[in-house]
Nucleic acid binder design. Structure first.
Length: 556
RNA sequence: GCGCCCGUAGCUCAGCUGGAUAGAGCGCUGGACUUCGAAUCCAAAGGUCGCAGGUUCAAAUCCUGCCGGGCGCGCCA
């Protein structure tokens, strides 16, 4: 929840600015209409006050920006919570708030606790977030790990903004790849039975199928040889899916639903979609295949839905799947794709628009690849050849929290260099622990206070807050109030790495503060005041980490 | 060739709905533990924001062109 106090104040300020502009307009100083929404932002730098606006620079007028700003500043000075207003070259208006205002805000943070930063308003809109959706033909790799971490965090941020969000994994559990998987397993099975065998071309030659084959030999000896390819496909898929579920759950990424392509194909969804496209005249036959006129909707060329051999391309069931999402009542769809599916987006959007859904109801986020490094050495990977670092191994090596930290620390569309060596380090070179350490430290201070018999649980007294007067303390207060606005913004941009950046900054300020000042001292009231601040920091660190899916340990 | 992404400090990256002296971590140099956790803190060094134009009172941020790196352009999935 964005603090009501702050919201009300912003409204007052906006209103005052608007009145000022209207007056100037009436007096004929403005050469063009002023913007409907007057810009007002939280200042990043304390020398620019607490809030600032550049309206005076935005409008064309007969007066100089400075003169305009000075006129607007006069109105602002009348607002109760405003301490002072400064006008700076070339025309910025910087607003300084009264300390008391921040103390009230802190009080509100403490009162809200777990809820601070979360939207109180529930939105009607139902959102379906689809991510990972790796083919169940092998273990999840670190590339999937990045998507998993990101998807989970985005879902959390959307929930925090009041959306009803569901996380779904689409299982491509049928088709050519699954056939190849079955054949590959059968080959491995023959191998462990010392029979002649050959892995199909483009088959899966990774180590994991050998393991599975060994297990089959132990349990069934050679009795499975009579079974067909489908049996092996099925068996391999089932086992791999269960491993994928376990890996994700160990990574603390939990899906609300798993959607099976097999079931989709059994339903009439795909047929219906084709019929609908045909009815609208967007389907035609050429060379024995059925084509969708995607070029009518911005795609660079038309696409085949049904091949001349009468089977579907990958595209056809995928349209059926997305249509199905809408049919289940989701108004907004978000897909996380790898960079190799980048060029696929226009045709998918084209299909949905052709079916009558709004173009903006689907957002596709392209998550770039991750390259693993061991120090300076680059590790090459390939799923098919079975050369890769699995998500499982990564979690075992560095832990879920550290892995998530690195995955979330960069924007998704940037290529990620993941240094295993650095991530493994349990030392100060590893930045992953910085935020958690701040949290654990805050936790331990609170514990120390309890042992000393100092409690701030009951009857918080306003005068205590006035003892928070160091500039470091005020700076921390400022940071706390940025949090809800950050969450709100991210609900729109779907970017979560700024949270990490922010928590890093908050943790840093807290560490410095701790090193410079004594929290628990002989001065009881000052101690209480500072403990309240520590509590506020703890709340924001915890809520922020929770959104990212990173744990907040009380001890490390 | 066309499309998408990236190019900012030695390294890895933030900042990019234009704003006030370009930030962080790591690394390097020098300091801080008898007192609430040193996985921390303090100080110092380090940048033609790929290049060239343009728009603007104001450009790392917007527009155009170019250069360098990655990915994609299937009746594959």
């Amino acid at each position: 929840m964005v603090s009501d106090l702050m919201e009300n104040l912003k409204k007052q300020i906006s209103l005052s600015l608007k009145e000022g502009m209207e007056k100037l307009e009436k007096e004929g100083f403005l050469k063009a209409p002023f913007p409907e929404k007057i810009p007002l932002s939280l200042s990043v730098n304390s020398q620019f006050g607490d809030l600032s606006t550049n309206v005076a620079l935005q409008v064309k007028s007969g007066k100089s920006p400075i003169a305009l700003a000075n006129i607007l500043a006069e109105g602002l000075r009348k607002i109760t919570s405003v301490e002072n207003v400064e006008v700076k070259e070339p025309g910025f208006i910087n607003i300084f708030l009264k300390r008391q205002f921040f103390y009230r805000l802190l009080f509100s943070v403490l009162k809200q606790g777990d809820k601070f930063g979360l939207s109180r308003r529930r939105k009607r809109e139902k959102v379906l977030l689809e991510f990972v959706s790796a083919n169940p033909t092998g273990p999840l790799t670190i590339a999937h790990g990045r998507q998993a971490a990101l998807g989970e965090a985005i879902a959390n941020v959307l929930s925090a903004n009041g959306y009803q969000v569901a996380k779904e994994y689409y299982l491509n559990d049928t088709g050519v790849q699954i056939d190849l998987l079955g054949e590959s397993l059968l080959a491995r099975y023959r191998e462990v039975l010392t029979l002649p065998f050959s892995i199909p071309e483009d088959g899966y030659s990774g180590e994991y199928l050998k393991e599975m084959a060994k297990d089959l030999k132990e349990k069934y000896q050679d009795k499975l040889l009579a079974k067909g390819k489908d049996f092996f496909s099925n068996l391999a898929t089932v086992r791999i899916i269960s491993q994928i579920r376990k890996d994700l759950s160990d990574f603390r990424v939990n899906f609300d639903s798993w959607f099976s392509e097999t079931k989709l194909r059994q339903s009439s969804s795909i047929k219906n979609v084709l019929a609908k496209l045909k009815e609208k005249g967007y389907l035609y036959q050429k060379g024995g295949a059925f084509w969708f006129k995607s070029s009518l909707f911005g795609d660079e060329k038309d696409r085949v839905l049904k091949k001349s051999d009468d089977t579907y391309t990958y595209f056809a069931p995928d349209i059926g799947y997305h249509q199905n999402k809408y049919e289940r009542g989701y108004q907004r769809l978000i897909d996380l794709f790898g960079p190799d599916h980048d060029g696929y987006v226009p045709r998918l959007k084209a299909a949905l628009v052709a079916l009558g859904y709004p173009v903006n109801s689907l957002s596709v986020l392209i998550v770039q690849l991750t390259t693993l490094y061991q120090g300076k050495k680059k590790l090459q990977m390939s799923t098919r050849k079975g050369k890769f670092i699995t998500l499982r191994e990564l979690i075992q090596e560095v832990g879920a929290d550290v892995a998530k930290y690195f995955f979330l620390s960069r924007k998704p569309q940037s290529h990620l260099d993941f240094d295993l060596e650095l991530a493994k380090k349990n030392s100060l070179e590893n930045p992953a622990y910085y935020i958690q350490y701040a949290y654990a430290r805050a936790e331990s201070i609170m514990k120390f206070a309890r042992e000393k018999g100092i409690s701030v649980k009951r009857r918080i007294k306003l005068p205590w807050f006035f003892l928070l007067s160091e500039k470091e303390e005020i700076a921390i207060l400022h940071l706390l109030f940025r949090f809800p606005y950050l969450i709100e913004a991210e609900g729109k941009t779907l970017e979560v790495h700024p949270i990490l950046k922010f928590l890093q900054e908050l943790a840093g300020n807290f560490h410095s503060y701790y090193a410079k000042f004594r929290i628990i001292s002989e001065d009881k009231d000052l101690t209480r005041a500072r403990l309240l601040l520590v509590k506020g920091v703890r709340i924001v660190l915890k809520n922020g980490l929770k959104l990212l899916g990173i744990s907040a340990p009380e001890k490390m």
